[in-house]
Amino acid sequence: MRQGTGTWRQATALLLTLLALLLTGCARRGQAATPAWDGVLRISAPPLAHAGETVSVLVEGAAPDGAEVTLTVMLGYGPHVYRAQMIRGAAALAIPAADTREAGAATLVAGVGAARASTSLNIVAGPTTTLSEPLVGPRSICVGELDHSLATVIASDQYDNAPADGTGLTLHLSYPDGSLAALELRTRGGMAWAPLVGHRRAGTVAVGATSGGAHSSDADMSVAACVPTPFSLRAVPPGLPADGRQILTLRTSPITDSYANPLPDGTLITFLVAAPSGELRIPAQTIGGVAEVTLRAPQEPGTASVRAIILGVESAPLEIVFSSMGGLAPLHR
């Protein structure tokens, strides 16, 4: 009996604790609202303002003195609420500069009691103060007028608002030959863009932008020679004894495009050697417009014909004589 009583005690205690926890969630009732004023209300504000300006708003109506005026400004990033009191049928309110930094259309709604009045306000961007570094793509193009890139600049005022469409912007280009060029552009949707070409000199083109007093940092665009002109080959030394050990160097003449720009370093060139023992394929890369490979002397004497090819552009053939071990060819260095 004693033990059973203890069990009931513990169960009841648990129940009471749970009940106490549940009771903590209760709240008291609210108060009833007072009657609201319902008359004619007028609101006046400038139709246009620049971002970051203070905007004055006047609310008029026959509401009693001391009645609370609520001004709600609905902007793209959310509403702001301001309050004032009616004094002799009017209330003057100011939207602070900190709340007009985002450009765009705003709706102003004034309320006194149950009465409402509204107007609209257009906040426009201020003068351009920031220009992004021009976005250039592709970052490298070929010399000449056939290949294009595109430069895009993003403009904004001090509050990161896009300027109005048609805002002027100048794109400055500095070419590898030292010449300068300027392109006049107009923004649309906060951006301005222009196609770029490589002209005749390979190298780096610096691309910058200005608008009013704003300057962008420069972006680089690489202009490279792409299509080679025919070139020649030479061997150093011009011949070797056919000992299977010595090495001969095959070297191209400077490979350039039609504007005399050397091909960029690392361009693949393939040397094709037709030797008595069979065909040879020797890949190489240009450095300073010149490519060279080494050729091991064959063990059998004979003549080899050498050509070099860069994507369909072929050099003039070169003949190399590998003499027998008995009559060594003279070394020319």
Binding site: G266, S277, G278, E279, L280, I282, P283, Q285, R296
Partner: peptide, 12 residues
């Protein structure tokens, strides 16, 4: 991985 060190000799 842009090395191109191998050449093909005596292809037949």
């Amino acid at each position: 991985d842009l090395r191109r060190d191998l050449s093909l000799y005596n292809l037949r």
